[in-house]
Amino acid sequence: MLSNASSKKIPATVIHVHDLRCGYRQRSVLRGISFDVQQGEFIGLLGPNGSGKTTLLLALSGVIPAQSGRINVMQQPIFQVKPKERARRMAVVTQDTAVHFPFVCEEVVRMGRYPHQSRWQLEDAQDAAVVQRAMQLTDTETLSQRLITAISGGEKQRVSMAKALAQETPILLLDEATSAMDIHRKLQIFRVLRHLNQEGELTIIAVLHDINLAALFCRRLMLLKEGLLVADGQTGRVMTSEILQEVYDAEVLVHEVAETGKKQVVFLP
């Protein structure tokens, strides 16, 4: 553990994972994974279906226990952190955003303030301001009085994102959080995330299917295959046709787009 974690020059390790095995019942989905995440990183977590991306996020957020190995979040084992404190350190946007009860969207976003509220304290001015800001950032203000049960999938995902931002956490985990949005919304949300990441030192780990989207915004990529970490490093170094070919079992071309200076992927038929 780093003793100088609080010093300002060296970024603090916010997540430390060592030899993590994890899964459901007897089966291990993750089979020994180790990595560290520094404060302010923007990480894309990629891999084919069933490679363990969602399981890793569930383990990081303390929903499923590790079978063996270690997960520290801000220098503390995750299972030692109380649920409310955990939700103050880390917010998660999941793929499944179904809400069965007819809350209006603003009420759903306000639920994100729960970890900051004590039992007898109702919402105060700061809560209201944070909720408003979260809804501005995700462009959900116009939805605020609409029923969550009556809006589209993409809109639900934006509300879900607003709820997570309202948690005001230093770490944000995204599991296919923009999958139902159109390309314009996707880019809009990711621009906001990049802004929060660069200016606010928000640490982001995003599970994505869209490799090109990951290449545009993530500065580090982690590639999972069959429960193992196959590649982990700077986006430019990991985005090679050899590595992607191995992970996805498909023919791949990687180009650098001159206008953006970013690499993009084309899969061959």
């Binding site: 350190r89 304290q121 105060d124 005001e168 956490t169 929060l196």
Partner: peptide, 28 residues
Amino acid sequence: MGSSISRWPNEKPPEKSYRILGHWFRSR
């Protein structure tokens, strides 16, 4: 540790001292 490092850019949190009973009653 906690919310201070994640505070949104260019955004100062409002004063917390605003919470007084009168306000609370008026608003809810």
